[in-house]
């Protein structure tokens, strides 16, 4: 199981496509920094191809900084810094996409 860390916004479509190709059952994605813009309800379509058992997270501090906490998709769970660390240690590997 792999944790995919995405730190670029949906405007980096080639990068996101590459990440989505690498997703497998049971993996998780966490959006951080500019990546949290992908958590917006308006961008839900981005993740339509991923399996149901792939969890989506977005980092709380980065959502708050950008003023978008209340605008994110229901598919996405909010993770604080501690939960981010737990995710990193629970998964077998982490991969950063940037």
């Amino acid at each position: 199981m792999t944790l995919h860390i995405l730190n670029k916004s949906p405007s980096a479509d080639a990068l996101i496509k590459r990440m989505l190709c690498a997703i497998e059952d049971g993996d998780a994605i966490i959006m951080i920094e500019d990546g949290v813009l992908g958590a917006l309800d308006a961008h839900q379509g981005l993740f339509s191809s991923i399996p149901d058992n792939v969890a989506l997270f977005a980092l709380e501090a980065d959502l708050e900084a950008r003023g978008i906490t209340s605008r994110i998709s229901e598919q996405v769970s909010i993770a604080d810094d501690k939960q981010f660390v737990v995710l990193c240690s629970d998964m077998d590997k982490t991969v950063s996409w940037y």
């Binding site: 916004s9 405007s11 500019d34 813009l37 709380e60 501090a61 980065d62 708050e64 900084a65 950008r66 003023g67 978008i68």
Partner: peptide, 19 residues
């Protein structure tokens, strides 16, 4: 234009990322 529109968004709270 593009992602820059987010610079103008209301309710930004960058305290936790020290910006």
């Amino acid at each position: 234009c593009g992602d820059a529109i987010f610079q103008l968004l209301k309710d930004q709270q960058p305290g936790k990322i020290q910006q």
